[in-house]
Design a protein around this nucleic acid. Structure first.
Lengths: 248, 248
DNA sequence: TAGTGGTCTAGACCACAAA
DNA sequence: TTGTGGTCTAGACCACTAA
């Protein structure tokens, strides 16, 4: 099952340094469920012994996985597969703040619809779906202080997440849910943001005027193996809030 | 000048691991101009000898600076202070793309105004200015395909950047300019984004209707020492473009 | 050929957590 | 006390660059 690690064949195409081979091997094991979220990996020493490399090489591999939040390291305890919690998932991927403060705004969900359907072409492309693959579409409106502030449509592969509609009503924080129920851990996301006028339907949902400015956000969220897991279209009323971005 | 490095006093308040002390020391030297942008640092070996630590410790410090793009490492050549180029600065901090493609949109500047003035309170706060410190304010409109797409107001401390108005007209990419002329290297930025209606003045500048949705972006840009260097308000017409954000 | 950063190893000791 | 990750060292060898 596990491929052979090789340090001394730099001429072969596709050669990687040992620590990167170890990194890919451990990442693949995690993605395949060898260790579940919140579980501890074996110690550096035992991994090194098993793989026939030095502890320093395993350490470098684990450090790189920790830098991407795939694992968490706890001194004196061990190395653990990162578990999404409601809080951490919110803060990491949901960056809406109240104006005039650095306080996170956490909209709550009152109701949601869910249905299985054939995906439109843009969704099929975004999720890299097979030709005949269906999707679940979740539509929901989320509120801050009882005011509707956010309308979103969420698409996931129906093959990847069978019987998603059986879990109705879905929890507010879906990324935790994906991880628990479908072994789908979101590790990165790419967003496209623009300002748009609210159309009739959005205006009704968000209780604003037709044509009022709304923030339009399209997001693709990716899993451990780098494949797209979710496609999301969100429309924000940013009258009292703003979206926060840090560039480094 | 240089403080004494100490590995073996973990009980003292403010203790840092050796490699972090080395990191801070090198960062301070770069910030103070000991090595200028595009210059090479001494080799790992000579830094290790000078500081009385092992090469591995210097390496860990340099790797961490490289991860934040403060330095760049080139195998076989050396370690260099990162130099902003027009291209790299654009791509790193300016994330406007054409709709329907992954192609960067690079608006050009046709004219700009520049004036020295007393900062309004929000600018004073954003730049952490002293009570009586003045700012330069740069106002400019930028174009894509001869269409006005972006209006921005840029504020910098007049003490930090004396005689900025003597450089009129300013180049399109200011971060390169700051680094060359004022030893101010931008290494990170924080943005707040919302959708707003265009007011009368913005509508005239961007040749759109009053009340049309525009993307409103406030950005604080920080230097090597973590101090705010620039505050910027930008207003985009995102009819044909979008803002791109990657979350990890 | 010499000098640089990149990889890999081996081992010592420290800090932390839990039994 | 034991076992974990965190720091630090020393040294070998590789890959890349430029003279």
């Amino acid at each position: 099952m596990d491929m052979q690690l090789s340090a001394r064949h730099p001429d072969r195409p596709g050669f990687l340094p040992l620590y990167q081979q170890v990194r890919e091997l451990l990442l693949a094991r995690i993605a395949n469920g060898a260790w579940r979220p919140a579980e501890a990996l074996p110690s550096e020493q035992s991994l090194a012994a098993e793989l026939g490399v030095s502890q320093g090489t395993v350490r470098k591999a684990l450090d790189s996985l920790a830098a991407e939040s795939v694992v968490e390291r706890r001194q004196g305890k061990g190395t653990y597969v990162t578990q999404h919690t409601t809080e951490s998932a919110q803060f990491r991927f949901f960056r809406l703040n109240y104006d005039g403060s650095n306080e996170r705004a956490l909209p709550t969900c009152k109701q949601a619809s869910i249905s299985k359907r054939k995906p439109p072409q843009d969704v099929r492309t975004a999720l890299e779906l097979a030709a005949n693959e269906d999707v679940f579409c979740v539509g929901r409106t989320r509120y801050i202080d009882d005011q509707p502030m956010l309308r979103e449509e969420i698409f996931v592969s129906a093959d990847r997440m069978p019987n998603l509609d059986a879990h109705h009503p879905l929890p507010n924080t879906l990324y935790t849910f994906y991880q628990h129920h479908y072994d789908a851990t979101i590790v990165s996301a790419a967003e496209q943001i623009k300002a748009s006028p609210a159309d009739k339907r959005v205006a009704r949902e968000l209780q604003i005027e037709v044509g009022a400015p709304v923030l339009f956000v399209e997001r693709r969220a990716f899993g451990l193996k780098g494949a797209p897991i979710e496609f999301r279209r969100a429309i924000f009323n940013t009258e009292f809030t703003h979206y926060e971005v840090n560039l480094t």
